[in-house]
Structures are given as structure tokens and as C-alpha cells.
Computed example of a mutant assay.
Amino acid sequence: MNYNLQDAMAGLIEVFHSYSGKEGDKYKLNKGELKTLLNEKLPGFLSASNDPMLVEKIMNDLDENQDGEVDFQEFVVLVTALTVACNEFFTGCEKEQSCSKKD
């Protein structure tokens, strides 16, 4: 696979701004916008958790300035953390050779 980092960055920016500002500040995600983004762009992420307060917990963790919204910089922290976790999972699987693709 050949991925272009610049395209990935542009995609991240585009995704954020396509959800931000539907309600309120156009440069920030409120809790509802964040939940919609997670449900639509990371299907299975919220449903994999049995915690009904997961979005609130994520919001509280990301919202460094405590304004009740997540700006782009705060959002990138979430994407980075998830990317690192995925990398560690797949790297661990490759080392153990225990991951197999299930059809």
C-alpha cells in the first residue's frame, strides 16, 4: 500500500471540520458532534465499550481548557492516542504471530 502523509493530514482536517460547528463554534466539537463523528468515522469504537459514559469521559480527557468543547488540537490528541494504541496492538500481534485475519 502506498499512503501519502499529506493526504492523511488533509483527511483528518476535513473530517474534523465536517463535524465541527454544526452547533455553536464552527472550530470546535461539542459532545454531540464528537459522538456523531466517533460513531460515523470510527464504527465500532463506542459500541465496543459497555460504558454509557464513554463519550463524556473522552470529552473530559480531551478538553484541556475545560470549555466544554474539543478544538482541533485537542481532537488530534485522541486520534494520536488511538493510532499509537493500534500500532502497538498490531506490532505486538506481528511479534507473537498470533493475529490472523478472520473472514
Rank of each mutant, 00 (worst) to 15 (best):
residue 2 N to E: 12
residue 3 Y to M: 08
residue 6 Q to S: 07
residue 8 A to D: 14
residue 12 L to Y: 00
residue 14 E to D: 13
residue 16 F to W: 11
residue 17 H to L: 11
residue 17 H to R: 10
residue 19 Y to G: 04
residue 20 S to L: 04
residue 20 S to A: 03
residue 22 K to P: 01
residue 24 G to K: 04
residue 26 K to S: 11
residue 28 K to V: 01
residue 29 L to A: 01
residue 31 K to G: 06
residue 31 K to E: 06
residue 33 E to A: 04
residue 36 T to R: 15
residue 37 L to N: 10
residue 37 L to F: 05
residue 41 K to E: 06
residue 41 K to Q: 06
residue 42 L to Q: 08
residue 42 L to F: 13
residue 42 L to P: 08
residue 44 G to C: 02
residue 44 G to Q: 02
residue 46 L to C: 06
residue 47 S to Q: 12
residue 47 S to C: 00
residue 47 S to W: 03
residue 51 D to E: 02
residue 54 L to A: 10
residue 55 V to I: 11
residue 56 E to D: 05
residue 58 I to Y: 13
residue 62 L to D: 07
residue 65 N to C: 12
residue 65 N to F: 14
residue 67 D to I: 13
residue 70 V to Q: 02
residue 71 D to Y: 02
residue 71 D to W: 04
residue 73 Q to C: 15
residue 73 Q to F: 15
residue 77 V to N: 03
residue 78 L to K: 03
residue 78 L to P: 04
residue 79 V to H: 10
residue 81 A to S: 14
residue 83 T to S: 12
residue 88 E to G: 03
residue 89 F to I: 07
residue 90 F to G: 00
residue 91 T to R: 15
residue 92 G to F: 11
residue 94 E to V: 11
residue 95 K to R: 10
residue 95 K to A: 07
residue 96 E to T: 12
residue 97 Q to R: 15
residue 102 K to E: 14
